[in-house]
């Protein structure tokens, strides 16, 4: 598909070096200190700022996308956080599956503003807490057509709950993204759910400010609806089912964090015209100001 907003940039070694340089020297970072793909709960401190830069790739049977994404987050209170994320598309998919990149980053070329509200928090021990967070967001596309359908603005809502400690982590959540009609066409909606288990081995239990690492096993279940076109039969009940599983790793040192991981489909029960995936990759750098 022709990129109508950003120039198409071929992915070559010098460009990869530039990405790496940006990642290392930039003042932007990742997604927080939770999982890479699944919904999570932590919010920033009151007045806290988190900057992220992420590289994402999604591969289907016929093509592969590459994208850089930037995320700015600000803690209005210790329970209320605002986020703004923008993409730089390097290589778009001609036929993109309906999915999200992670809990506050779209996988496609959308610009998204979101609000996180941690409505429940119970810190009951050293390093231990239960908490629940609600997310609402609005998105505007940076492309005109996606998967042969006009792309409209969209709204996203999700809820997640989880447990964190110094050793074990777990989150479950679910969300829904709805695209508005544009020019008589409408992208399919996306209900989804995620579950994540995390573990920090003993060898990474060094006290602050020593670095620590944790590993997550992440899973996503997505049920994307089909696109709709004017004059077409209503395919409201027609949905694909995708289940993806994969590992991710998170390393933290002082104000810095790096996470990377992959997701692989284990179930793809697709409707006619839905896109079969091979894998998703992501790397994310974070800096807390």
């Amino acid at each position: 598909m022709i990129n109508k907003v950003f120039p198409k940039i071929s992915l070559n070694i010098p460009y990869l070096k530039l990405i790496l340089l940006l990642a290392i020297s930039g003042s932007a970072m990742a997604q927080g200190h939770g999982p890479l793909y699944g919904l999570q709960t932590p919010t920033l401190a009151k007045g806290g700022v988190d900057l992220n830069v992420a590289g994402m790739s999604l591969s289907t049977e016929t093509e592969t996308s590459y994208m850089l994404r930037y995320l700015f987050s600000y803690g209005i209170t210790e329970d209320l956080q605002i986020n703004l994320t923008t993409p730089t598309m390097i290589e778009r998919l001609g036929d993109a599956p309906r999915t999200r990149g992670n809990s506050n980053m779209p996988a496609n070329g959308d610009i998204e503003a979101s609000l996180w509200y941690r409505f429940f928090s119970n810190a009951f021990g050293v390093g231990k807490r239960f908490e629940s967070t609600a997310i609402v967001g609005v998105s505007a596309p940076t492309d005109d057509v996606r998967g042969q359908a006009n792309v409209g603005n969209s709204v996203h809502a999700a809820i997640s709950t989880g447990y964190a400690s110094r050793t074990w982590y777990g989150w479950i959540g679910g969300g829904y993204q709805y695209y508005f009609e544009k020019g008589g066409e409408q992208l399919g909606d996306l209900p989804y759910a995620s579950a994540v288990v995390g573990y920090r081995p003993n060898i990474f239990m060094g006290d602050y400010p020593k670095p620590d690492w944790r590993i997550f096993i992440e899973s996503l279940a997505e049920f994307p609806g089909d696109n709709k076109f004017e004059g077409q039969m209503d395919f409201t009940d027609s949905r694909s089912t995708k289940i993806l599983v994969g590992p991710s790793f998170l390393g933290l040192y002082g104000a810095w964090g790096i996470s990377f991981g992959a997701m692989f489909p284990v179930v793809q029960d697709l409707t006619l015209g839905a896109v079969k995936e091979r894998y998703r990759l992501a790397i994310n750098l974070s800096y807390w100001l």
Binding site: A123, V126, G127, K128, P209, L252
Partner: peptide, 29 residues
């Protein structure tokens, strides 16, 4: 209670250090 990660400790340490009257601060996760 509830502090589980390095950025959590970093944020708290930085916040405390900004307070007038604190001479030394050390945070242990």
């Amino acid at each position: 209670y509830g502090m589980d990660c390095a950025p959590c400790a970093y944020g708290l340490e930085r916040g405390l250090k900004k307070m007038d009257g604190l001479q030394e601060v050390r945070v242990s996760l």
